[in-house]
Every structure is written in C-alpha cells, then in structure tokens.
C-alpha cells in the first residue's frame, strides 16, 4: 500500500495549520474506513493523513438545552448514533439509517462526518439529517461557517468544503411537536448494502389535525447528490394526509428523481421504489407522530 505519514493534531487549529503546511497530497481522515479502502485500491495516494480522531469533543451527540437543537459531532461514529437513546427516542429517522450503514465493525469506527464528506451518492447517512433541516458547521483557515446540509453537496465526491476546511458538527434545529420522521434504505440483502435508493421523510402536522404543516422528502441515490423533492413536499403541505395523498406524493417524487441505471439497479425500478417508499415512509411518519403524541 501507498506509504503516508499520519499526523495527529489535538485541536482544530492545529489540524488546519498542519493541513496548510503540507499543501500537496494531504487529507483529513476520521474513522478511515473509506480513506483506507481508497488508498489500498490506489484511487487516492495521500502523503499525509491528518487524523481528526483525537480532536476533543467532536464525537458527542447531545441536545443544546437552550436552543433545543441536536448537536451531532462530525466525529460521532455511526455506532454512537445507533446506540444513542436520545437518537432512538427523539430522532428515530436517524436511527433508521445509521443502523444499516456497513457492519458493526464499520459502524464502530466510521463517522457520520466521514460519511457526509465522502459525498458519494450511496452514502446515505446524510439523508435523514437533510430531511431534518440539518445544518453543517465547518471550520477552516478562514474560521467558522455554516451551510444548510442540502447545499453542502456539489456533486459526486464534491462538497462546499474548501481546502483545509473541516466539517465539525451537524446541527438539527429544534423540531416542532407533531413531527415524525422515517427512513428506508432499499437494497437486495438485509445488511451490508449500499442503497439502490434511500427515502427519508419528515412530516409535521398541525396540532390536533392531520393537516400537513411541513414536509421534507429527501432521496439518496436519486441524483448525483442528495435530492429534496420540492414539488412533492409542496404538494403535501397544507393537505390532510392520508394514504391516497401520500401515493400521489410518491408519484410526484418519483417524477422529480433523477435516477439512472447502474449495476446495482435499473432506473425504472429505482423510480418505482421512490414512489412506493415515499408512501410507506410517509405512513410510518404519521404512525410515529401518533405514537409520540
């Protein structure tokens, strides 16, 4: 395998300055599960890997008691999210997704930040976070900035991160009451799958009615980057939700998806699954809202 030096900064500033002082062929690495595979395959050939693993406090998952925001440190592992009671109880949509990313061994090491920064269409950790209106917080040579997670992705493997910038946190804004979310990865096997398609939905109902106040439908692998199907979202907003309406929304979302053929699945099938799972996840959202209220 390609040789490299492994640098272990203790602070964000140290990490950024290490990056700047090693200009060429330098990369940040967190859990390393993607970086190591790509390095072994010769797809990347870094001379320096800057580990983010030992930066303090970026691996936490916690609520901000003042703002009621959920803060997910970018270095939180999928396993941390999977086993978090907070996530399981209050954000089951995130649990839906992270429990099926890779294997236990991968989830013990791989981070949610790494999954997002990797920005491959099949990395579906971001989908529920986008559906929850998540915001990405970054730190780099020019300081701190934030961007809505949906705007974080620019193309396969491409993000808004500038050279030396580090994704530090995902912030999930406070959720209204009567909100429910659900995510489904569609694959062939029950585990170890990259999604053929991923469907994440968050619905907020008006209190004491079935009228949809807010809808988020986010699809993975339906386009080069995560895709919010805005027409379908608009269609749902203001309507009394029932199965028929969700069927219609599913069809609209399927139309909006920009799926394609690959060895993992054919476009027509992916499109079909969008419409099926928008309905099914929508119903699951409604069920979860009912259960929590």
């Amino acid at each position: 395998m390609k040789t490299f030096s492994y640098l272990v900064p203790k602070t964000l500033d140290e990490a950024v300055s290490l990056f700047e002082s090693h200009s060429d062929r330098v990369m940040y690495v967190a859990g390393g599960t993607d970086v190591m595979v790509k390095t072994k395959q010769g797809k990347i050939a870094p001379d320096y890997l800057i580990s983010l693993k030992h930066l303090s406090d970026l691996d936490k998952v916690k609520m901000n008691p003042d703002t009621n925001e959920l803060i997910i440190g970018a270095l939180a592992t999928h396993r941390t999210l999977e086993t978090s009671t907070l996530i399981r109880r209050q954000f089951p949509i995130i649990h839906d997704a992270v429990q099926h990313i890779g294997s236990t061994q991968i989830r013990n090491v791989a981070t949610i930040g790494g999954n997002i920064v990797n920005a491959v269409p099949s990395a579906d950790g971001a989908i529920p976070l986008i559906a929850l209106d998540g915001v990405a917080k970054m730190y780099g040579p020019n300081g701190e900035r934030t961007v809505d997670l949906i705007h974080f992705f620019e193309g396969p493997g491409q993000t808004v991160l500038e050279a030396g910038e580090i994704l530090t946190e995902i912030i999930i804004p406070s959720q209204s009451s009567h909100t429910g979310g659900a995510y489904q990865k569609v694959g062939r096997r029950a585990a170890m799958e990259l999604p053929l398609i991923g469907v994440g939905i968050v619905l907020t109902l008006e209190p004491d009615s079935a009228v949809c106040q807010k809808a988020r439908i986010c699809l993975g692998v339906a386009a080069p980057t995560p895709l919010r199907t805005l027409s379908a979202e608009r269609f749902l907003t203001g309507k009394v939700l029932n199965e028929d309406i969700l069927i219609e929304a599913g069809n609209i979302a399927a139309e909006e998806s920009r799926v394609r053929d690959s060895i993992r699945g054919q476009a027509w099938y992916r499109r079909e699954m969008v419409s099926v799972f928008v309905r099914r996840m929508g119903l699951k959202c409604l069920k979860r809202i009912e259960e929590t209220n």
Binding site: G32, T33, M36, V37, K40, Q41, R79, G102, S103, T104, Q105, I106, N108, V109, M192
Partner: peptide, 20 residues
C-alpha cells in the same frame, strides 16, 4: 476492504475490521 469481517479483532471492547 471491510466487507467480510474475517479480520475482526476487538479494540477497547469494540469489534473492528483490522484491515482498515
């Protein structure tokens, strides 16, 4: 490449793929 688990070891109580 972390897809078969034959290399699994336990680090600080957690199963990991030693190949990655």
């Amino acid at each position: 490449s972390g897809e078969c688990g034959a290399c699994t070891v336990i680090v600080d109580g957690q199963a990991v793929n030693s190949c990655l």
